[in-house]
Design a protein around this nucleic acid. Structure first.
Lengths: 246, 246
DNA sequence: CGTTGCGTTGAGAGGCTTCAACCTAGGTGG
DNA sequence: CCACCTAGGTTGAAGCCTCTCAACGCAACG
C-alpha cells in the first residue's frame, strides 16, 4: 500500500513471495532502479553473441528469451514478466547464447554486477530470495520442456496460461483470473513448439469449451479449475508455498 | 596426470575447463569427496516432493532428472554425467520439484550446503567456476527445449549425441568420438519427446547414413562433421571457449 | 483507401504415434 | 545344460495429430 507506484514494486512483490523483507531491505532494493530503459514492442534487448550488458530486470511490459535456427525457426524459451530478473551471474559469460526481446513496450533496467554483488553480500535475506528466484526460473524451464515434450496442443496452451496466471498474480498484474497477454498466435506457436495454424485451432477449442476468452491482448480464464485440470497444472515448481494452491 | 584416479577427477576437469585451478584449490575440492554413495542402475536418487538431501555430485556413471505425468508419461529433462553437480542452492527449496534417477550404476556424493558455501566463500576461483557451471546447465536446458520444440526426430537425436560427446570429452570419458551410452531407446524417446518406435527408426536412419554406430551401450560417431551438420550443432551454449570448436 | 499484420478457414500431406507381433540376448532356475 | 523368462530392439500397418500451403477476412493505420 505504501509504494505501489514504485517501478520496483513488481520485484519487491516477487521477492516477498519467497521471504518477507524488512523496510531496510525494501529500501535497498529501491536503490536498484538506476537508469530505466524504455523499449518499444518487438525489439531485441540483447542478441546471441553479444556481451552481457548486466543483469536484466523487467519493470513493466513483457519480454522473452529465444533462440533461432538457421532456417529461421524460432523457439521461445522463457517469458519475462515484471519483477523477473536475468541470471545473477550472467556477467561471467563473455557472450550471450540466446536473444532477449520485447513482446510489448517495456521498461527495464540493466543492473551492474557489482551493485548486485554488494547487495547480496550485505543482505542475506535478499540474496536468498534472489537465488530462490533463479531456482524457480530453472524449474520453469524444466516444466516448459515437459510441456513441449509430452503434452498435447491444447494441454500446452492451457498449461502456459495457468502458469502465467500464477506468475502475474504474484506481482499483482492479474485480477479476476484475467491478465494482459500481448502475444500473437505466432508467438504462442513458437513458445509451444507448434504451428500458428494449430495454435489458432487449439484456442478455438479452449474457447468452445468455455475455458477462456482471449481478445484484444487480454486473456480471461473463465473456468480455472477446468483449465488447470486440462493442463494437469501443479504449481509446485514455482515454489510459492501455499499461496498458489499446488 | 597427477591424480587421474581420484574419484573427484571429473569435477576437477570440468571446472578447469572454465578456469585453471591452483594446487590448493584442487586440494580443497578433493575434500568434497565425503561418503560416496553407490547407486545401482535404474534407481531413484531422489523423488519429487522429497526434501533435498544436499548438493548432488556425480562421480561415476550416468544419471538423469525427470518428471512424470499422471498418465505415466515421463519426460527426461537433463542428463548428469561424471563431474556434473546439482544446483548450488537447492537447499533453499523445501521440496524437490522433479526426480533424479540413475541410468547405469553410479557413484555419487551429497555435498552439505555448508561445506560448499564455505568453499565458495574462501575460494573465489572455484566459486566462479561453479557458477559458470550452473549457467551452462541452464543454457543446456534451453537448448533441449529448442531441440524438442523445433527439430525433427533425426535432428534431435543427432543433437543430443553431439552434446554428450562434448560434455564427456571435457571429463575425459570420450575418446575417438566414442563413449559409453547406457540408455535404452525408451530413455532416448523420453528425452527427445518421441515414441520409442520412432527413436528406433531414426537411429536406423543415422546408421544407414553412416553417421553413428550404437550397440552394446556404446556410441561411436563415425562422421562427426556430418552429424553436427545434421543437428545444426553449435557448442557455444556450453561456454567452453574454443576447446569445443563452436 | 490501400497497405499491413494478424486471425481464421479449408484441404491435402506427412511425420510420428499406437498397437501388436516377433526376434534376440542375457540371466535364472530346474 | 537347457528351458524359460524378461527386457530391449525391430518391424508392419493403420491412423491421427499436426504441418504446410494458400486463400480470405478484418481491423488498425498512414
Amino acid at each position: 500500500m505504501t509504494q505501489t507506484s514504485s517501478p520496483l514494486n513488481p520485484l519487491l512483490r516477487k521477492l516477498e513471495a519467497f521471504a518477507p523483507l524488512s523496510e531496510a531491505e525494501r529500501a535497498v532494493l529501491e536503490g536498484l532502479s538506476g537508469p530505466i530503459e524504455v523499449v518499444p514492442a518487438h525489439a531485441d534487448l540483447i542478441r546471441e553473441g553479444d556481451k552481457p550488458k548486466g543483469i536484466l530486470l523487467v519493470l513493466e511490459g513483457m519480454a522473452f528469451r529465444y533462440k533461432t535456427r538457421a532456417s529461421g525457426a524460432r523457439q521461445i524459451v522463457a517469458y519475462l514478466v515484471p519483477g523477473d530478473m536475468g541470471d545473477l551471474d550472467v556477467a561471467l559469460l563473455d557472450q550471450m547464447d540466446h536473444n532477449i526481446a520485447s513482446f510489448s513496450a517495456c521498461k527495464v533496467v540493466w543492473i551492474k554486477p557489482e551493485t548486485l554483488a554488494s547487495i547480496q553480500q550485505n543482505y542475506p535475506t535478499i540474496a536468498r530470495a534472489l537465488r530462490m528466484s533463479t531456482l524457480v526460473d530453472e524449474a520453469t524451464l524444466r516444466e516448459w520442456l515437459v510441456n513441449v515434450g509430452c503434452r498435447s496442443a491444447i494441454e500446452r496452451i492451457a498449461h502456459l496460461f495457468c502458469e502465467l496466471l500464477v506468475r502475474l498474480q504474484v506481482v499483482g498484474l492479474a485480477t479476476d483470473n484475467s491478465y494482459t497477454l500481448p502475444l500473437t498466435q505466432l508467438d504462442l506457436a513458437d513458445t509451444t513448439g507448434m504451428s500458428n495454424v494449430h495454435v489458432n485451432r487449439s484456442l478455438q477449442e479452449l474457447r468452445r469449451q468455455g475455458l477462456i476468452e482471449l481478445k484484444g491482448g487480454r486473456l480471461t480464464i473463465l473456468n480455472l479449475p477446468r483449465l488447470r485440470a486440462v493442463a494437469e497444472f501443479k504449481a509446485n515448481y514455482l515454489h510459492l508455498g501455499d499461496q498458489a494452491a499446488a
